[in-house]
Simulated scan of single mutants.
Amino acid sequence: MDDSTRSAAGGPPGVRLGRVLGIPVHVSLSWLVLAALITFRYGEVVQGNLPELAVPAAYAVGFGFVLCLMVSVFLHELGHAVTSRLHGIGVRAISLEMLGGFTEMERESPTPRVELAVSLVGPAVSAVLGLAGWGVLLVVPPGSVAHELAFQITASNLIVAVFNVLPGLPLDGGRALRALIWAATGDRYLGTRLAGYAGRVVAAATLLGCLWLYVRSPGGAGGFIVVIVGAVLAVFLWAGAGQAIRGGRLAARFDLVHAGRLARPALQVPSGTPLAEVGRRVAETGAGAVVVLDGGGTPVALVSEHAAAAVPAERAPWVTVDTVARTLVPHLVLPAALAREDVMRAVQTHPASEYLVVDGPVGARPAAAHIVGVLVADDLANLLDPKRTIR
């Protein structure tokens, strides 16, 4: 249905429809497939409800319903986007998908109050659209095309509004639950995890509810379609809830990402030092990493822990430290104050096994006196995923 905090690093897939209020709007290929199915399936329903209509006209009404549904989903997401902007949160894009849509925001909500406002405005928009459709139903004659469309728009928007406020991620109601738990405990990530578990309950209840309706109904193709749709929706919700639980666990550890605090104490050795001598000095000092200096005392390379470990002990006296070191280049030097997403961005942009961490200006040739230590990529990975196996 809706997950307003999703991120698409490569941009949302599908067809770009244009911009609204400067926000790119995309429609996924899955939505186009669903649109075709709805057009033909609903066209058959219209033929049964309005037998006086010609077959092409019935399918045209079905296509009109698809367009109205698309506009409804878009307005739901636009409500999220506008509210986010009002609270200073940028919006990258709005995407319409088979099971609804999502608004890609530039960052998380800064407070529980903002999170609650952004999450509830979408269902509120859908509820207003549903009530507006109900108002149209009161004035248009029954048995007309307008009455048929108004009924479907009313029903679909009210169902979306009610379903989306169910308290479980990835639904809007799950975001609202997260905001309330966050406000009560001061822990955003606890709210994310608990709302994710609630989302799994909603997913299971959705599937069981559809099966119950199928058993209670006379059956047939229509009832079977309800079960299939319910199963697809339940799988989507279960997957989204699981992603929220994992994301909450990861994000809680994400606050611990800080270059200076993660840096290992580094032993500084001159270029040309035998590896055996380096090993002896590491054992004496308890250093966790090794930095190679040139004749002027400037850091020029970082020893690879894995490469050094691969050298047989009997060869260590004859192998210099430079052989197992990587030349220090500017993007391997990180300021000690770098934290959270800035650390992750630096590591993802320039992957390496070790990074030099300094407390002074980050330049092409940092001074040895400014060395804080060495950030080892494996340490960062283990912090974020303690169950990770290093190969």
Rank of each mutant, 00 (worst) to 15 (best):
M1A: 13
S4D: 05
G11A: 11
P12G: 10
G18C: 08
G22E: 08
P24D: 10
W31Q: 05
L34Q: 01
T39W: 09
Y42N: 04
G43K: 00
N49W: 04
P51D: 02
E52I: 05
L53Y: 00
L53P: 00
A54T: 03
L67A: 13
F74W: 04
H80L: 12
S84D: 06
H87G: 08
I89L: 15
I89S: 06
G90H: 11
R92C: 06
L96C: 10
G101E: 08
T103R: 05
E104V: 07
E108G: 12
P110Q: 08
P110A: 10
T111W: 10
T111K: 13
P112F: 02
P112V: 01
E115L: 12
E115M: 10
V125Y: 02
A127E: 05
A127I: 06
V140L: 10
G143S: 06
V145F: 06
H147F: 12
N164A: 02
G168F: 00
L171F: 05
G174R: 00
G174Q: 01
A176L: 03
I181V: 15
W182R: 02
A184C: 06
T185H: 08
G209A: 12
C210A: 15
W212G: 11
L213H: 08
R216S: 14
A221F: 13
V226S: 08
V227P: 12
L233N: 02
F236Y: 14
A252V: 03
L256S: 14
V257S: 12
A259K: 08
A263V: 10
R264Y: 04
P265R: 02
Q268L: 15
V269L: 14
T273Y: 09
A276D: 15
E277Q: 13
V278H: 06
G279Y: 06
R281H: 12
V292N: 00
L293D: 02
D294S: 09
A301I: 12
A308H: 02
V311N: 10
E314T: 04
A316D: 04
P317V: 04
W318G: 07
V319A: 05
V324I: 02
L328W: 05
V329W: 09
P335V: 01
A337E: 15
A339E: 03
E341W: 08
V347I: 13
T349Y: 06
E354H: 14
Y355C: 05
V357P: 07
A364I: 08
R365C: 07
D378R: 14
L383Y: 09
L384K: 04
